[in-house]
């Protein structure tokens, strides 16, 4: 079976750095940045993008609806 592939886009300026997405990711894709956004919060980035399956777990728990999830459709 081919690996399911996806990625996330982040609305960095709306992020408050709560890190819940990092905890929620089952595949260790996300890590908090060393930089801060305009509000002074650190924010997540894809440390291991190839691990992302587009499962949206991060987006589901994100309280600030910062995350948009993309996924490559699996061929039937």
């Amino acid at each position: 079976m081919a690996k399911i592939k996806g990625f996330v886009e982040l609305n960095i300026e709306h992020c408050k750095g709560c890190e819940l997405c990092v905890d929620a990711c089952p595949f260790d894709v996300l890590e908090m940045s060393a930089q801060v956004n305009g509000k002074g919060y650190t924010y997540p980035f894809m440390k291991n993008p190839e691990q992302c399956t587009g499962c949206a777990s991060c987006a589901l728990v994100c309280p600030d609806v910062v995350i948009t999830v993309y996924k490559v459709p699996t061929k039937q």
Partner: peptide
Amino acid sequence: QGAEVVFSKTKNLTDTPFSYCGG
């Protein structure tokens, strides 16, 4: 490869960032 959006912000939320604390 045809990646498409599977999760995005509902249009029933405004663009105003929430005033709630992070988390």
